[in-house]
Simulated assay, not measured.
Amino acid sequence: MKISEKIKEFFEEKGWSHTEIGAKYGVSQQTITNYLNEKRAIPLDFLVWMKEVFPDVDINSIISKQENHIVSESKAMYKRKESREEILKEFGKILDNYL
């Protein structure tokens, strides 16, 4: 499953519209639609924002081609909110494994 498909499914399950996502992230509904329909690349900052807003999101699952969901259910209840710096470090470690 593609990253955009995972993110789209995640927000659909949460009941968030593209307008609501855009308003909370600080961009237009059209920008979110473009991200999720692969007309624009999803910026790393958007993924960091998702992790800040939804601490249960598993960064590795977003990037992994083997994973179809982006929330690790077993960790979701116990996950503490991470700082932006911690999230970026986690992204760096994961990307090092993929590059």
Rank of each mutant, 00 (worst) to 15 (best):
L99N: 12
F46E: 07
Y78S: 10
M1F: 11
Q30P: 05
I87R: 03
I87N: 07
E38V: 03
I63L: 02
I87Y: 06
E38G: 05
M1H: 13
D56S: 13
T19R: 14
V53P: 01
E73C: 03
S83D: 10
Y35W: 14
S74G: 12
V27A: 03
I21G: 03
N60K: 04
K51L: 04
S74W: 14
D58F: 05
T31G: 04
S83W: 06
Q66G: 10
S4I: 07
E86S: 13
A41S: 15
A23V: 07
E38H: 06
E20V: 08
T31V: 12
N68M: 10
N68E: 15
E9T: 14
H18F: 14
F54M: 06
Q30T: 15
L88K: 13
M77G: 15
T33N: 15
S83M: 06
T19M: 08
P55S: 07
E90R: 08
F91I: 13
S72C: 11
E5V: 12
K39V: 11
G92C: 06
S83K: 08
I32Y: 06
K93G: 03
I94G: 00
K65H: 04
K39D: 11
S64Y: 06
S61W: 11
F91L: 09
A76K: 11
Q30G: 14
E5R: 10
T19S: 13
K81A: 12
S4T: 13
I42A: 02
S28V: 06
K79L: 09
Q29M: 06
I7Q: 00
H69Y: 13
V71D: 07
E85R: 07
H18P: 03
I3M: 09
F46H: 03
I94P: 00
E13W: 05
N68P: 04
I63C: 00
S83P: 08
E38Q: 12
Q66H: 12
R40H: 15
I59G: 00
E9M: 09
G92H: 09
K24C: 06
E13H: 06
N68W: 12
H69V: 15
K39S: 09
F11S: 05
A76L: 07
V53R: 00
V53I: 10
K39C: 08
I59P: 00
V53L: 00
S74H: 14
E90A: 08
N68F: 13
K2A: 08
T33V: 09
V71Y: 08
T31R: 02
E12Y: 05
I62P: 01
F54Y: 15
H69T: 15
L95I: 14
F91K: 02
T31I: 08
I63G: 01
I32F: 07
I42H: 04
Q30S: 15
F46K: 02
W49K: 02
K8C: 09
I62G: 01
E67V: 09
S64G: 04
R80K: 11
A76G: 11
P43V: 04
E52N: 05
Q30H: 12
I59L: 00
E73I: 13
E20Y: 05
K51T: 13
I87M: 05
N97D: 04
K24R: 12
L47Q: 06
V57T: 05
F91W: 12
A23Y: 11
Y35N: 08
K14D: 05
N37H: 14
E85S: 13
K24E: 15
F10W: 10
Y35D: 11
I21R: 01
F54C: 06
F11R: 04
I21C: 01
I94M: 00
I59Q: 00
F46G: 07
K8R: 15
Q66P: 01
